[in-house]
Design a protein around this nucleic acid. Structure first.
Length: 553
RNA sequence: UGCCCGAUGGUGUAACUGGCAACACGCCUGAUUUUGAUUCAGGAAAGUCCAGGUUCGAGCCCUGGUCGGGCAACCA
């Protein structure tokens, strides 16, 4: 009996609609505005919309909500498409709200003819004043009672470019005293003499979101139009337009957007991080953008898994970034090949090992994989180990190297630290050790048991690589709520670059294999896109789980 | 002072629609381990915002509160 995952509230609605024969198949849509890059919050929406269509045998359209030419660009369209594809989803139709401009215009004319829309000459300040406040009713515009003929003429003139930006708008005629602010004669069209990324200079009037989104849904016969909670008050207007226009009755459903601690999620703030140079770009590995996470080494599988785990509901939520990290680790643990890389080298010389000798040892690529295979790792008399894997005065349960103590060198031999060499100022510069020849990995007859195993790299065979370590972008859980600006809380240590780390020679194949790795005991890494043949750069996707208290009580 | 949402362990979701609160992350213990990883076993942690009501029985229904969030861009 397979475990049945309980349905989220939207799946329940869909199943009921299907069961009752309301629809033969469902059609959803993902409607980004091309004014920024997609982030992990969008991923949740993408997984929801595309996931619904996939599990219930429907279709999902990709529709760009491009009704504001001043903020939208083709660059964003391209990045959005790339991100969706990378996440593993395929849209049915690629559409743009701008594809429907002509039809939307006709819709507006229809409303004017029905006496349900009018051209208003009020300034934006006047309109704002007319709106009233949430607790006090609004007042009617002096232009509200223009005749249908006059409105028709004026609206046509607006389209024809007879007026300047802001001179006139087209408003729906509903109710200025409506308790729902969105129903107080909302603006349908505004004048913007701006170049549009798709329609060029064809139009100088552009529909507002409320007069474009639901209508586009209807045109595409979207059955379930899923959006986030902030659009709940818009639903009444969404339904009003559909009813008055007598078009396909798409239904809007709202869910709670994804929030995550230690980061910001609004496009406006992400744009500021980019523009003000706090990060290197939209795809900076510290960004919660899809492109940033991709560059950081996250896998599509892990992001989809994450979106599945966070669930879909209607209450505000803040997801612990730890859950995201768990999801990548779980996936990468199964697929990443293991490699040894020393970040902070300490020289270790094996005094009883022949000078000039090189031994090729075999090491498992991935103990979690059935056929992971092995790779050769060169071993010699002089090695680098991690400086933190040695302590002159170790705490009680320190399993690593210390004077007189033994450790296993991963996939190699057991060594004992015999002597500590220091420089004139007392810094440890070298460890003189002896190895147990009968303790070779896989052929250990020494009978010696050690608690610790550490990674290492043979000095003469080591390859130098750059390693970039990332920490959370913000120092506090919620950068939005503190005093001052959210940028005040940026973590100054969110990026640590180790220009010279020493890796085993097998790493040289990274350029052509483009694999993801687990650097033993260090975390999961992937090759950064800035790598060249001369210089390999690795990004740390996430550390390994660490439950060791570091020796402290 | 209006309208609209929401409220279940630290976090996020469940609870077959009224039948003695479950799963995951995190945390703690122990076992295994040539990664202090993984894996495995076990544990702590909410009595479901509050007060009434309906009912044999309420996290689910009703009423009234409380608390949190949203709504007054020619943004989406």
């Amino acid at each position: 009996m397979a475990e049945v995952r309980s349905l989220n509230f939207i799946e329940e609605i869909v199943e009921r609609d299907l069961r009752e024969g309301k629809y033969e198949k469902i059609i959803t849509r993902f409607p980004p505005e091309p004014n920024g890059y997609l982030h992990i919050g969008h991923a949740k929406s993408i997984c929801l919309n595309f996931g619904l269509a996939a599990t219930y045998g429907g279709e999902t359209n990709l529709r760009f909500d491009d009704t504001n030419p001043v903020t939208e660009e083709t660059e964003y369209v391209e990045s959005i498409k790339e991100d969706i594809r990378w996440l593993g989803f395929q849209w049915h139709r690629e559409r743009y709200a701008s594809d429907y401009f002509e039809q939307l215009y006709e819709f507006a004319v229809k409303l004017i003819r029905k006496g349900l829309a009018y051209v208003d000459d009020s300034t934006s300040e006047e309109i704002a004043a007319q709106k009233g406040t949430p607790t006090t009713p609004g007042t009617e515009s002096p232009y509200r009672s223009r005749s249908v003929e006059e409105n028709l003429e004026l609206f046509a003139a607006m389209r024809a470019g007879k007026y300047r930006d802001g001179e006139k708008v087209l408003r729906a005629k509903i109710d200025m005293a409506h308790p729902n602010m969105h129903m107080r004669d909302p603006i349908m069209y505004r004048i913007k003499h701006a170049h549009h990324h798709r329609t060029g200079d064809k139009w100088c009037i552009y529909p507002m979101y409320d007069f474009a989104h639901g209508q586009s849904d209807a045109i595409e016969q979207i059955t379930h139009s899923i959006c986030t909670l902030e659009f709940v008050p818009h639903r009444e207007l969404y339904d009003w337009f559909i009813e008055k226009l007598e078009i396909y009755p798409s239904k809007q459903y709202e869910f709670a957007r994804l929030n995550m601690n230690y980061t910001v999620m609004s496009k406006r703030k992400l744009l500021r991080l980019v523009n003000e140079g706090h990060v290197a770009g939209w795809d900076d590995p510290r960004m919660p953008t899809i492109s940033g996470m991709r560059r950081r080494g996250y896998t599509p599988e892990s992001i989809r898994d994450f979106c599945e785990r966070v669930g879909v509901a209607r209450r505000d939520n803040v997801i612990d970034v730890g859950l995201l990290e768990f999801c990548v680790r779980e996936h990468l643990n199964k697929v990443a090949e293991r490699r040894m890389v020393v970040f902070d080298p300490l020289k270790l010389v094996i005094t009883n090992y022949p000078e000039g000798k090189t031994e090729m040892l075999e090491s498992e690529n991935n103990p979690e994989a059935d056929n992971g295979g092995t790779r050769p790792v060169p071993f010699s008399r002089e090695l680098y180990i991690e400086r933190e894997d040695f302590m002159e005065n170790p705490p009680r349960k320190y399993f690593r190297l210390a004077p007189g103590q033994m450790v296993r060198l991963k996939s190699a031999y057991i060594v004992r630290c015999d002597e500590v060499i220091k420089d004139s100022s007392g810094n440890v510069v070298e460890l003189r050790c002896s190895y147990l020849p009968e303790s070779r990995s896989g052929a250990d007859t020494s009978g010696v048991q050690v608690k610790g195993t550490i990674h290492w790299v043979s000095i003469p065979h080591a390859v130098e690589v750059e390693v970039r370590l990332y920490d959370r972008l913000f120092k506090v859980e919620n950068p939005d709520e503190g005093e001052g600006d959210f940028t005040d809380y940026i973590n100054p240590d969110s990026l640590t670059i180790i220009e010279k780390a020493y890796g085993e020679p097998e790493l040289l194949t990274a350029r052509t294999s483009a694999k993801r790795y687990q650097f033993l005991r260090k975390g999961y890494f992937c090759l950064d896109t800035s790598s060249t043949d001369d210089k390999l750069v690795f990004n740390r996707t996430v550390t390994l789980r660490d439950t060791w208290g570091g020796g402290k009580k």
